[in-house]
Simulated scan of single mutants.
Amino acid sequence: MDRIIKSHRGIYYVEQNNKVILCKARGVFRDRDIKPIVGDLVDISINDDGTGYIEKVYERKNQLLRPPLANIDQVIIIMSLKDPKINLNLLDKYILMLEKSNLEIKIIFNKVDLVKDKDMEYISSIYANIGYDIYFNSNVKESNLSLDRLFEDKITAVVGPSGVGKSTTLNKIFSNFNFDTGEISVKNKKGKHTTRHIEMSKLSNNSYIIDTPGFSSLSLEFIDERNDIKDNFIEFRKYANKCKYNDCYHINEPVCGVKLALEEKIIAKERYENYKQILNEYDKIRRF
């Protein structure tokens, strides 16, 4: 089996024995409504001119919707605490999508040099307490934090909003690579869009990294059922069995274990409010 490490305008770059073969997909995939994506394991045939055709796409162990990626081991979300100010609703949407895809999640919070310790403690009280691996990073200060170990022997997708320092962080960790970077516009505080295609960079025989385009919003197209939302706020699970009703959505129902945990400050208010907003957004979409 070989692996698609890049795709661009219908051309698939397939790694085979440490060489990259430029391939097209057979028409049969279009007939079957199968579109190969980066990360897919494939069989290829090679033409006389050295190019190839994808003959088979193997079943995916997982798939990320945005951006479209397959067979990855973990996703590292990079957010900034300031410039741009962290958007917890957007972060929780992304976590929701990754939980639904059963992907391992790590979170790096950037630009800690611009905030106070209490700001880091606030973030930690929400996400570390849930059980997520979180890391605080500065790209302008020296740090003893060895972020490179997070990528060892894994296929890692790195995601984050525009302007949070995602590519700058990767360039600092892996100085032998050159990930595209963009400055923040002072006028609108938005990052310039820099990453234009999806490509896997090989760190070692067993380690790959995928830098993805920055995002500023995330639609809920990845949600199939309303239950997906409450089921993938993972801190709710422990307390949902104390709800009176099995189909409790933890909003207006009586005798709700999640709302009780919220009152006791076991569940973070910020997460619960974002949950309600996401649920409300989903309901509005489904009305039309």
Results as ranks from 00 to 15, higher is better:
residue 179 F to W: 07
residue 206 N to I: 03
residue 22 L to H: 03
residue 117 D to C: 05
residue 40 D to W: 05
residue 207 S to P: 12
residue 114 L to Y: 07
residue 173 I to S: 04
residue 44 I to V: 11
residue 82 K to I: 09
residue 235 E to A: 02
residue 62 N to G: 09
residue 170 L to E: 11
residue 286 R to G: 00
residue 74 Q to S: 04
residue 238 K to D: 14
residue 131 G to Q: 08
residue 54 I to F: 03
residue 72 I to L: 12
residue 8 H to D: 11
residue 129 N to G: 01
residue 269 K to R: 10
residue 20 V to C: 00
residue 274 N to V: 11
residue 201 S to I: 02
residue 111 K to D: 10
residue 281 E to S: 13
residue 28 V to T: 14
residue 180 D to Q: 12
residue 148 D to R: 13
residue 226 R to I: 13
residue 37 I to T: 03
residue 161 P to W: 14
residue 273 E to A: 01
residue 252 N to D: 15
residue 155 I to V: 15
residue 207 S to R: 09
residue 225 E to W: 00
residue 149 R to V: 13
residue 201 S to E: 13
residue 184 I to D: 03
residue 45 S to H: 01
residue 149 R to M: 08
residue 146 S to D: 15
residue 79 M to I: 11
residue 225 E to K: 13
residue 276 K to M: 11
residue 42 V to E: 11
residue 57 V to Y: 06
residue 221 E to I: 00
residue 226 R to W: 08
residue 41 L to F: 11
residue 137 N to Y: 14
residue 61 K to M: 03
residue 83 D to K: 14
residue 232 N to L: 04
residue 145 L to M: 00
residue 92 D to Q: 04
residue 64 L to R: 05
residue 80 S to C: 09
residue 164 V to F: 11
residue 73 D to N: 15
residue 9 R to G: 01
residue 146 S to Q: 07
residue 64 L to A: 02
residue 167 S to M: 13
residue 46 I to Q: 13
residue 43 D to Y: 06
residue 282 Y to Q: 07
residue 68 P to F: 02
residue 14 V to I: 07
residue 1 M to I: 09
residue 75 V to N: 06
residue 52 G to S: 10
residue 56 K to D: 02
residue 248 C to E: 10
residue 258 V to N: 08
residue 154 K to Q: 07
residue 193 H to I: 11
residue 157 A to V: 11
residue 23 C to F: 06
residue 132 Y to C: 01
residue 284 K to G: 02
residue 288 F to K: 14
residue 248 C to H: 07
residue 152 E to S: 06
residue 24 K to P: 04
residue 174 F to G: 07
residue 67 P to V: 04
residue 182 G to R: 12
residue 183 E to S: 14
residue 190 K to E: 08
residue 5 I to Y: 02
residue 74 Q to A: 09
residue 280 N to S: 15
residue 190 K to D: 05
residue 87 N to S: 14
residue 47 N to P: 01
residue 251 I to E: 13
residue 271 R to Q: 14
residue 198 I to H: 00
residue 189 K to R: 13
residue 119 D to W: 00
residue 145 L to W: 05
residue 144 N to Y: 11
residue 203 L to Y: 09
residue 240 A to N: 10
residue 84 P to S: 06
residue 175 S to G: 01
residue 269 K to M: 14
residue 128 A to S: 15
residue 17 N to T: 09
residue 281 E to Q: 14
residue 225 E to Q: 12
residue 87 N to K: 10
residue 158 V to E: 06
residue 230 K to G: 07
residue 193 H to Y: 12
residue 164 V to C: 11
residue 76 I to Q: 04
residue 43 D to L: 10
residue 158 V to L: 01
residue 202 K to M: 05
residue 8 H to R: 09
residue 278 I to F: 01
residue 129 N to L: 12
residue 128 A to F: 06
residue 200 M to C: 11
residue 60 R to H: 04
residue 186 V to N: 14
residue 26 R to V: 02
residue 117 D to V: 09
residue 286 R to K: 15
residue 200 M to D: 05
residue 50 G to C: 05
